[in-house]
C-alpha cells in the first residue's frame, strides 16, 4: 500500500504531540482529506500552511503515495 509521510511543525506539532506520522493511501486524495482522515475531530484551521514535497500548496492539492505532506502554523523567522 503506498504511504505518505505527514509532518507537523511549531505550535501545531506540540498541540498534536506528534512531529511525523505515516498514512496509507488507497487512492490519490487532497491534503484536506489527508488531514481529515488523520484528525477527524479537529478542523483544519484557516491559518495553517500546507506544503507537499516542500513546496507550498492549497488544501485542494492532490497528493500521491511516496510524497511528503507538511502542516504548520504561520512562519515567524527572521
Amino acid at each position: 500500500m503506498p504511504k505518505i509521510s505527514v509532518l507537523y511543525f511549531g505550535q501545531l506539532r506540540e498541540q498534536l504531540a506528534c512531529g511525523q506520522e505515516d498514512l496509507e493511501l488507497q487512492d490519490p486524495c487532497t491534503v484536506a482529506e489527508v488531514w481529515q482522515s488523520l484528525h477527524p475531530q479537529r478542523t483544519l484551521a484557516q491559518n495553517i500552511l500546507i506544503a507537499v514535497n516542500q513546496e507550498y500548496v492549497k488544501a485542494d492539492f492532490v497528493v500521491k503515495g511516496g510524497e511528503e505532506v507538511a502542516f504548520f502554523p504561520p512562519v515567524t523567522g527572521g
Binding site: 511549531g10 505550535q11 506544503a51 507538511a70 504548520f72 502554523p73 512562519v75 515567524t76 523567522g77 527572521g78
Partner: peptide, 11 residues
Amino acid sequence: ILKSRAPFWKK
C-alpha cells in the same frame, strides 16, 4: 520573504 515564507517558528 524570509519573514513571511521561510518555514521558521519562534517560541
